[in-house]
Design a binder for these strands. Structure first.
Lengths: 341, 341
DNA sequence: TATTTTTTCGAGACCGTTCCCGGGAACGGT
DNA sequence: ACCGTTCCCGGGAACGGTCTCGAAAAAATA
């Protein structure tokens, strides 16, 4: 068997020419006789020659690939964002390496070093929910590797950012519930060291203030993404002396599960309790009643991040860029008009 | 700024020693004076030295990483499978490179060459729904790179395989519907060049035969994954002179959307039409009525694939291995007992 | 003190490419 | 017949590490 992988040198030897010539043919340069090139290409094809990207990248001092770190792709928001990244990367002819931090700081750090070690030319990162310090990004960014943070951005690194108008849309969502007649609005918040979560909470609070509604600490739940505690939270809310008449949740999963449990306990949606989620997952349309949600343009965010990054890879002296992508409130029946005030 | 990345040679020069010694310290070998090692480690740390994985891998002639090609991670089945792959890979200390084919043959081929070019030590692949030939895998597998196909396996490459008991579970699912009193069972099938789809269809057909039910071609829909034609299919089924009283769908998305449309058209689930899906997505629990489904153990399949692959990477003369993972029928209300026969 | 063993380190080849540079052949113009 | 171009091609350094081999220094042994 020809177990050994075939190299440029093998081809050169078999053809009785130098490896320089083979390299020239394979990398499509012009200063080579068409006939020689033809022979080289034919043999390379026969032998199933695969160029060694390691050697090429080492020599060229660049890899033409961007590294991506996202919390987890089972979260469809991130899966779609990665889709957006790959779409524009493919168009631009650059490769993508995807890593998942699984919402773990240590794993995010490992991914980061692994990517830098592989000499990616740039990074697109959405930090884990556990990450509350940024010392791992700083030296890498300062070394000149462009970074674009998206959605879960890292505030104290002066890199490019792509995020949504969290504050505004949370404000709008809350106001929507208020104008529909809901007054006791609970808020399922995310970890407060995350930029997104903080701004969403602020939007919620300011909307309450604007409409002269009291802010009750007992209505604010500080959850973690995917904490699996939704049932506990739901029971907590239901047993409150003044049960909330609406819930604005940090994501659709929490909203849907909560809604489900409340329904099983005989509460009517949206008459007794309205629901508003975040992310506008497909399944919002299929639950009973269909869930109102904030459409979070994942694909666009990924695409924008890749655009910015690739641009900076090509023009290293460009300044970091911030881009804000607009979210959109999608109203469905779960936040319909309240019947009884 | 120290824009240039620091290398082993830089450290050697600054310390007035040879790069061999630095290499020894950094790669943790023993034949080095503790004090020298200490100094090297300290300086490396100060300079934020990151080893160049390209150089190391090139020299070592192996990368200690496995390449993964899946159709798309927005499909949660594959996202979970990737999770399983990464879990056991992390435990074993090997890296993972994830690529998405987006259900495209050409893109699958590109991914494949890109991974081989990056000299991954092994491959885990679930082929795209478009892929109906296998000539791209053959030369690579014959070159000695171990491959594990999972779920969407490639039959004519004699590589390792991990798949579920498609035939048996489709048989069981169909029989379940029959024993619950449903007689006119429609089947939403996948592309027939895929091993899975074929076997599931066979299971369905054989279950009908066993119970002496007629096979009606008009009840069998040949769909493509994610074709966006569910509404068309649903209308087609509803207008049949003998409307089916049950639908067994290739995946939960199709089942849920179909169920939703039929409900809107006034059909009672499961009294008028029962539903059974495939994959047991989270949302099955939250739709109305909860959707019965086949639990497809994605995480376990990924984990098994990684186990087998890593084992073969470590012991190159191992024979290819096939492993069958058991699926499980999860009965919920969408396939409850029929009231009117 | 002489010899052997152990410890610690340096020189340099090598992995598979790219690319600069220089050289020979062919060719056209004078 | 000579010279300047143009066209092809080969030699060899470089990319950043690892690793083998041997040598010098230090320690142990005789």
């Amino acid at each position: 068997m020809d177990k050994k992988t075939v190299t440029i040198k093998d081809i050169a030897r078999m053809l009785g020419i130098s490896k320089s010539t083979v390299s020239r043919a394979l990398s499509g340069r012009s200063d080579i006789h068409p006939e020689t090139k033809q022979k080289i290409m034919a043999l390379a094809n026969d032998l199933h020659y695969e160029p060694n990207a390691l050697a090429i990248n080492l020599k060229q001092q660049k890899t033409n690939t961007i590294g991506v770190i996202v919390p987890e792709t089972v979260n469809r928001f991130f899966a779609r964002a990665v889709g957006g990244i790959q779409k524009v990367s493919d168009m631009a002819g650059v490769n993508v390496m995807i890593c998942q931090s699984n919402e773990s700081y240590i794993s995010e750090k490992n991914n980061l070093h692994s990517l830098v070690s592989s000499r990616v030319d740039g990074l697109i990162v959405s930090i884990s929910s556990e990450t509350d310090r940024t010392d791992h990004f700083k030296p890498i960014f300062e070394r000149g590797i462009p970074i674009v943070f998206f959605d879960r951005i890292c505030e104290d690194v002066h890199a490019s950012q792509v995020y949504t108008d969290n504050y505004e849309i949370a404000f709008e969502g809350t106001e929507h519930l208020i104008t529909r007649g809901y007054r006791r609005i609970a808020f399922v918040a995310g970890p407060q060291h995350l930029f997104n979560s903080r701004n969403r909470l602020l939007g919620y609070l300011d909307a309450l203030k604007k409409h002269n509604l009291p802010v009750k600490e007992s209505y604010i739940i500080h959850s973690h993404y995917g904490s699996g505690k939704v049932e506990e939270y739901t029971r907590y809310l239901m047993q409150l002396p003044q049960r909330p008449d609406a819930v604005f949740a940090i994501n659709d999963y929490a909203a849907i599960e909560m809604m489900h449990i409340m329904k099983k306990n005989g509460l009517k949606i949206p008459e007794d309790v309205a629901f508003l989620g975040f992310n506008n997952e497909d399944m919002c349309r299929f639950v009973e009643p269909p869930l109102s949600s904030i459409d979070h343009p994942a694909h666009d965010m990924g695409a924008a991040a890749a655009e910015i990054l690739i641009n900076q890879m090509r023009h290293p002296d460009l300044k970091p860029e911030s881009r804000i992508i607009k979210s959109r409130l999608v109203v469905r029946e779960s936040s319909g008009a309240r019947l009884v005030l």
